[in-house]
Amino acid sequence: MHTLLAHAADGSWPGPWILLVPLFWLSAVLLVVLVVRRVLWRRGGCGYGWGYGRGADSPLAALGRRYADGEIDADEYRARRAVLTERHDLRGGAK
């Protein structure tokens, strides 16, 4: 009686390492999914609510659009843009 890990007498069974083939394909599919996900993340998604892609405007773009439409004046635009673009250090203070 042959078990899954035993070799046939004529050597036709490829051996126990054949069990690694599903692991290879699983890791290959996982790698492709992770690469595609990372590319979509860096590009801002594909419009399905991931980040600020085509489906949603960035805060700066929305502010610029409000200024272009005349909803806010130049002083308010500059003040809000300064708040959005200021850099923070790790302690939370402005740099």
Rank of each mutant, 00 (worst) to 15 (best):
W41F: 13
A8R: 13
L4I: 07
P22Y: 05
P16A: 15
E76A: 03
H2L: 14
I72H: 10
V32T: 15
R42E: 13
R81N: 07
V33K: 03
W25K: 02
P16T: 04
W17R: 12
D10K: 04
R43T: 02
G55H: 06
A8N: 10
L34P: 00
R78W: 15
A62L: 14
V39W: 12
R78S: 11
W41K: 10
G49E: 08
G55I: 08
Y67R: 14
A56Q: 15
D69F: 00
L40Q: 06
R80P: 01
G55N: 05
T3Y: 13
D73H: 02
P16W: 00
H88W: 07
H88A: 02
D57Y: 05
H2G: 01
E71D: 15
H88C: 02
L34T: 05
R80K: 01
L5R: 03
G64T: 06
D10G: 01
H88E: 07
A62G: 10
R37I: 01
I72P: 07
I18M: 06
W41R: 02
K95R: 06
V33C: 00
G53N: 02
A28K: 06
V29I: 15
Y52G: 03
L30Y: 11
R65Q: 14
S58H: 08
A79Q: 14
D73F: 03
G47N: 00
L84F: 11
S27H: 13
R81W: 08
G49C: 01
L19Q: 13
R81K: 06
L40G: 00
S27W: 13
G11A: 06
L90H: 05
L23T: 05
A6V: 06
L60W: 04
I72Q: 09
S12M: 12
G53W: 11
W13K: 03
E76T: 10
L23R: 00
F24Y: 14
L30V: 05
R38V: 09
A56I: 12
